[in-house]
Nucleic acid binder design. Structure first.
Lengths: 225, 225
DNA sequence: ACCTGAACACCGTTCAAGT
DNA sequence: ACCTGAACACCGTTCAAGT
């Protein structure tokens, strides 16, 4: 049965196959996530990419959910954290959150997954630490800053998911929304039909910036300056 | 093989089994969703509850995603919509959004599912129509109102998911967060550790009300009153 | 026209058996 | 110590065959 000239699945097939490791698994999973999204990210698919069986992954990773947490950690870790500057804190908040949003968008589905069970890892804490510091540098009160960090998180996740949707079918979605709004009977939906243009106005970037500014303005209004 | 005295799976086993219908499927699915959450909501499980096979559902429902949309529609449809009153518009926004949030919380997982692909059904449009009307009644400008509706949607979904997490393990989560924050090294996380109390302060209701108010205050600040 | 039940192509996870 | 591969208990969806 042994055929020396054509060994089945020999290690020589692939150039210097790296040994299995937690990092190799994370890297393989990230590649799949980036190219095909969360739906395609199965333990079996990751294992296949590493030329092994799904069961082998469990030595290094505590199941799929733990893998997702590791991926989220890695992704959040790539976001550059500005050192709080009271003069430019507001723009720093914008760039921090836009950076997080973009990192999430690059890995379709991870934002939604992270929302369902939010990771409390050190990397996530580092980002929260930074965001809180920026808000406090802006003169926002302690309790307000803490709650505002939460509000802003919601906006980041929401913007990421929305952007992912538009990326998969950029024109299709926009057109669909427009027609849906236009098709509505004006008698029953007077407000929507008369505001259809405003509802679809602005790209992701613009709307995101607006949302952050509205939240910051709102919380600043209750901080005696 | 036929045994008249003990027929296998006879219709007489269950009292007056209702014939399969789209509505029956939706009702069965809602019951599963309420009791066991989205994770337990499989086509097979719904079929079993209706004493039939999973394949039979496809006559009335275009697959699982379509079923989820129908469920979301039903849930959103239960929210009572106030008729806009310029005098009490703000409180009306609160009650509308709190109503939606609570309806979502009652059906664990549906908020996250709806976020991933937002339904553009008539029922959802009716809620948007109402919300937009309330914001306009509050004197918010056209473009601001349109974008603010989106911002508020994000807060509702976020609050619902957060509340669902706390519901499954009310004390466990709160305790875990506290200890996670407390365990952090103060040297590396000076802001978080010194604001630990503020970060976990407030229940879901309080934080939600705060978020809505911050957003409304922020958008009102850019509307010349 | 509707339902059944088997089949197809997948899942995550476990675990005995090998090396 | 690590990996394999089969097994278990699930999925969504399709479709020939029945009634």
């Amino acid at each position: 049965v042994t055929e020396p000239d054509r060994p089945p699945r020999s290690r020589r097939d692939r150039p210097a196959k790296a040994p299995l490791s937690r990092d190799a698994i994370v890297q393989a999973a990230l590649a799949i996530l980036r190219s095909d999204g969360l739906g395609a990210l199965s333990m079996r698919r990751v294992a296949t990419a590493l030329d092994t069986g799904a069961g082998s992954l469990y030595v290094y990773v505590d199941g799929r959910d733990a893998l997702l947490e590791a991926l989220f950690d890695h992704i959040v870790g790539t976001v550059t954290l500005p050192s709080p500057d009271p003069a430019g804190w507001r723009e720093q908040v914008h760039s921090l959150l836009a950076g997080l949003r973009d990192a999430l968008i690059e890995h379709p589905g991870i934002a939604a997954a992270a929302m369902v069970d939010p990771p409390r890892t050190e990397v996530s804490m580092r980002l929260l630490e930074n965001l809180l510091g920026l808000l406090l540098a802006g003169g926002i009160g302690d309790q307000d800053a803490a709650w505002t960090a939460d509000i802003l998180s919601a906006q980041v996740t929401y913007a990421a998911i929305e952007a992912e949707l538009r990326r998969t079918e950029p024109d299709a979605i926009a057109a669909e929304v427009s027609t849906t709004l236009a098709t509505l009977p004006p008698a029953e939906f007077p407000v929507i039909t008369s505001h259809a243009a405003a509802l679809v106005a602005g790209d992701v970037e613009h709307r995101f910036r607006y949302a952050i500014d509205v939240v910051l303005d709102g919380v600043l209004a209750r901080t005696p300056s």
